[in-house]
Amino acid sequence: MATAQTRTLARTMMAPAVIVLLLWMAVPLAMTIWFSFQNYSLINPLMTGFAGWANYEYVIGDPSFTQSLINTLILVGGVLLITVIGGIFLALLLDQPLWGQGLLRIVVISPFFVMPPVAALIWKNGFMHPGYGMLGHLWKFFGLQPVDWFNQYPLFSVVVIVAWQWLPFATLIFLTALQSLSEEQREAAEMDGANAINRFWYIIMPHMARSVTIVILIQTIFLLGIFAEIRVTTGGGPGYASTNIAFLVFRTGILSNDIGAGSAGGVVAVIIANIVAIFLMRAVGKNLDA
């Protein structure tokens, strides 16, 4: 379709969206890059002028940076691993003939609707608190010493909380995909003599490939920026044990008021995200052909 007139109209209709997003991407990003080469601290107004690569050297050279980078990868990778594998199993389970399908879906999806700070607080106080958390009670019940999760396993604890939030999402998407696998396909496979394991690998998994890609894409978008869960639970600590890149930038820029160094961290975060994004878009772009 489309006459020249419609195309012109289409461009006009798209303009507002494209312009605001372009501004939203370009202007602050340009400022971040600019600041990252400046000496700029809100506490020390005397520190001004061009800083060269000093901010980058300061940020990247600091051991906390490497640690945050590793933490970010563990966080994203760990949550993806748990949610994808757990989600597939849970979806397979929910796809079995059972009573209360509809209600089950509602119960299972619930954690997805819980805002991150609440999720973090519930887990921190109601579950992982060594004194009165549920897990503490459980440990005591078995005669064990309650674990102080956020001090002993801070990053792992954050992974658990985030995975709890995203597992339902993955599960329901996989379940939707599973349910679109037609009964005929399954029956044909059974007629062909495929056993349950073969059916899983040769029929179900290929069919699910697309939804797995989607889940990875969407979750990665959100997981790279995990913030509230860390702020509310560990505050990035102990030390830098549970600080990811997002939180590091916040710590440097806002908490320590070092705009220059914070910006340098921001630029690095953008570069990392872009590297991840390029990979993902490549992988998913074809798949998303809507």
């Binding site: 939203w24 602050p28 971040t32 920026g225 997002a246 916040f250 820029g253 806002i254 921001g266």
Partner: peptide, 8 residues
Amino acid sequence: PAVGVLIP
């Protein structure tokens, strides 16, 4: 990442 543009 939001932190990339947080400061500006």
